[in-house]
Simulated assay, not measured.
Amino acid sequence: MEKHFELTDQEFERQFESCELDPAIFSHEAHLRLAWIHLYNYGIDKSLERIQIQLLRFASSAGDPGKYNKTLTIAAIKAVHHFMLRSKSASFMEFILEFPRLKYNFRELMDAHYGFDIFNSEKARTQYLEPDLLPFD
């Protein structure tokens, strides 16, 4: 079990939003959890807005503002949302066990939507690029 699970959803969200969360525990799974918490609490539109702002602020406070990738952020939120609509889970831990592909095959999941590398594209870092293979909606 990853270290971020030591925090409740409320405490995890609060620490992240206030940039108090230890960047060392903000793993890929923690990113997915952040999306799940926001989608669960605020819905898709508000989550897209809130997470982008919070991730930019968190990356800056951690001293790595260049790590933020707008396309990857939006695509990840949309992917989590897609699976949440099909989920029977009542918690993130149940959710990630129900859909382990999000954690273990995320790159391949993104490759099904994008015919180019959104992980290393400078353009994808600064603007949202729509999928060219398979839309999220």
Rank of each mutant, 00 (worst) to 15 (best):
M1A: 06
M110D: 09
F58W: 04
D64T: 07
L85A: 13
K78C: 11
E49N: 12
F5R: 03
E108G: 07
K3M: 09
W36K: 00
T71K: 00
R33S: 05
C19K: 08
R101H: 14
F106E: 04
D64Y: 04
H38N: 15
A62K: 02
I53H: 12
G63W: 08
L109F: 14
Y68F: 15
S60D: 14
L97I: 11
Y114C: 14
L134P: 01
R57N: 12
L134Q: 04
G66L: 13
K70V: 02
R14M: 09
N105P: 07
A124E: 06
P131S: 09
H4W: 07
E130I: 04
L109W: 03
E130P: 04
R14D: 11
E2N: 12
F106H: 10
F26D: 04
N120L: 15
E2R: 10
E94Q: 12
I44T: 05
K123F: 00
D64M: 12
E11W: 01
S121L: 02
R125S: 15
L39F: 07
E20H: 11
A30F: 10
H81N: 13
K67N: 11
V80H: 01
G66A: 14
F119S: 14
H113D: 12
I51H: 01
A30C: 09
Q127I: 10
W36E: 03
P100F: 02
Y42H: 13
L97M: 12
A24P: 01
G66S: 09
A30G: 10
Y68C: 09
E108Q: 09
P65I: 03
D22P: 07
E17S: 09
G115I: 00
E29W: 10
H113N: 10
T8Q: 12
H4F: 14
H28L: 07
Q15D: 10
A59D: 11
I53E: 12
E2D: 12
K3H: 08
A75D: 01
